[in-house]
Design a protein around this nucleic acid. Structure first.
Lengths: 356, 356
DNA sequence: CTGAAAGCGCTTACAG
DNA sequence: CTGAAAGCGCTTACAG
């Protein structure tokens, strides 16, 4: 037979009041009422009892009274703490944690059930799990469109990390400005003499993929060059096409695809970056989303741009907090793209001279 | 003038009741009352409204009433997501997240106010912030003794990660078995011919430091060797003493101290491990706690042992969940030390032969 | 200056 | 089967 831990019941204001011979409200006033005048001897008596009993406010009662839980949810579609070393979520969470501390919120991580087919879900048995929190930050490489639409439709206060669109209405988000960063990288290549720059992107169309492409297309237009946008479905085919079209530089969406391309180039006798420059469109960590085997290479110092993850997390919390205070104008204050910083690596160089 | 996002006030049971034409209590019963018979049509009506309104229970009300919310708190004395690359908490949190998913709990990270002098606190203005959660996991290199005592005294259900002691009573914890691991490392050195093995540990006395020392002392006793336990306050002095006492191997508590010692040894013309073996007592990440400047060395492959952080986190959650179900006998099931695994590195070798 | 009361959202005996 | 009520611990107008 096991002896269970018995719960010791805590002292309440009512008890303190009884011991001090005052009303329960009086105790609360001594505790909180800054601008109320209380007879010094009464106050002293209450404070004595408070001290003797070791009274502790019950945060539940207080918050229930205040109607705000001061809790922000953090919902991710995948587990946040991977066992692998590659840490995708870390910086986002760092920013979220930091700023929620500033804003005075606790963070509720939704890790419990709510999963179907191994993937987490916002809606469980028809109910929005996030509702426990005052508002919620959402992150996730793969978004569930239906859930997103529904959240928007419900007017639940949330901010997505990463730009998102919904037919159901305005989505609040803090994204990285992939379009600008991609265009900037194109410009960098252009200034190095590259005149044939291809884009190699995801097959699936997500907002971030679309943004990269639009940045690429914009740059092409500016320089009156025909775009060459390929998808990374079959990379050896992509590589063939790059050669055929005499491409000297490729903007590749993921490190994985870039690594594969680099391997293909080298086995074809090309040197990177002397013969082919490769720019990676964001410092995404490798081997997370690829369906093909990623070649094992010695560490490559990619030319890429830094996605301001930490800042994105912090900003999302700031916006959400403002939304909860009712201080935001939807669409104007709640959709933000943060700039990325170009990182010069070793995979981009001047365009090769004309072949003789 | 800004148009504000209108505050979406949350739906209450009372409102659902009004819409469904029943009493508020009825709504609660539909929600929770498993063993109550309710007219099917009533139940259906309530459930419809529940769905339409997107009702979500308010955890504060529920918890005030004394019910659990299936939420585990995670309290850390420092920020969990450091901006630096060295990630101390990551593996713990990984284990916590993984297991809380299994156990069906959400995770509440306490990041809100509750800080004094830059350090977080459990008790804020006298109130235990953790109470929102059903129970809590605590982690932190530096523990606040007073808070720990108070938590124990209050009988709040919590599990510490890392062995902790309190004069106020039994503390539930999942720690690493530093004593056994330290003794094992001593044995390894002994088998390599070392007969003069020193311990270099923290100045301050924490449970983990005490455990390492007791493991060291135990090993010394077994081999009938006089112990030589030094503190890492002044490492150059420590180094002098090691030479004077003809020590051939040092068990050093932290990587930082080990690195400093290694630097001292090399600048004195000694080679590590040929002339001096150095074992590090746990794979703690460097430069977190040192007060002295840590020398920049090329990456050293330390001989150390692996602290099973992920497992510790998972186990803590499992124990806490069992406590909440009332299935634990305090002290018997709630105090656990997990074994560490020896990692053979490049800083330990056979004892040098006798000098000629 | 102080007490009595209302009410935050919820669950659970208790009457009908 | 369902409603009315009590009460969890608290804060804050509102009377005195």
């Amino acid at each position: 037979m096991r002896r269970m831990t018995e719960q010791r019941k805590r002292i309440t204001q009512a008890e303190v009041a009884r011991l001090a011979g005052v009303s329960q409200a009086m105790v609360s006033l001594v505790l909180n009422g800054s601008d109320v005048r209380i007879a010094p001897e009464t106050r002293a008596r209450v404070e004595d009892v408070l001290r003797e009993t070791g009274y502790v406010v019950d945060i539940m009662g207080r918050r229930l009274r205040g109607k705000s839980n001061q809790i922000l949810g953090v919902f991710t579609y995948e587990a946040v703490f991977p066992s692998g070393s590659a840490d995708f979520y870390g910086p986002f969470l760092g920013g979220i944690e930091e700023e929620s501390e500033v804003q005075g919120f606790d963070l509720l991580l939704f890790t419990s059930p709510g999963r179907r087919q191994g993937r987490r879900q916002v809606y469980e048995q028809g109910s929005n799990r996030l509702g426990i929190a005052d508002g919620c930050i959402l992150l996730g490489r793969h978004t569930d469109r239906d859930e997103l639409d529904r959240l928007v439709d419900e007017r639940f206060p949330f901010v997505f990390i990463g730009r998102r669109e919904s037919s159901a209405g305005l989505v609040s988000y803090v994204g990285a400005d992939y379009a600008a960063a991609t265009a900037a990288m194109y410009e960098r290549l252009w200034s190095l003499g590259h005149r044939r720059v291809a884009l190699v992107g995801y097959r699936e169309e997500s907002e971030s993929t679309a943004d990269r492409r639009s940045g690429y297309l914009r740059a092409c237009r500016r320089h009156r060059k025909a775009p060459l946008a390929l998808t990374d479905a079959d990379l050896s085919q992509v590589f063939e096409q790059l050669r055929r079209e005499q491409v000297t530089a490729a903007l590749v969406e993921t490190t994985d695809a870039a690594a594969a391309l680099l391997a293909l180039a080298e086995s074809a006798g090309l040197r990177v970056p002397e013969d082919l420059s490769i720019g990676v469109l964001g410092d995404t960590d490798p081997s997370q989303t690829s369906t093909w085997p990623v070649p094992r290479l010695p560490a490559v110092e990619w030319t890429t741009f830094r996605i301001p993850r930490r800042e994105m997390g912090a900003r999302a919390v700031r916006i959400l907090a403002a939304m909860l205070r009712g201080e935001t104008e939807p669409g104007r204050d709640t959709q933000v793209l943060l700039p990325c910083v170009l990182l010069d690596g070793a995979t981009v160089a001047e365009a090769p001279g004309p072949r003789r």
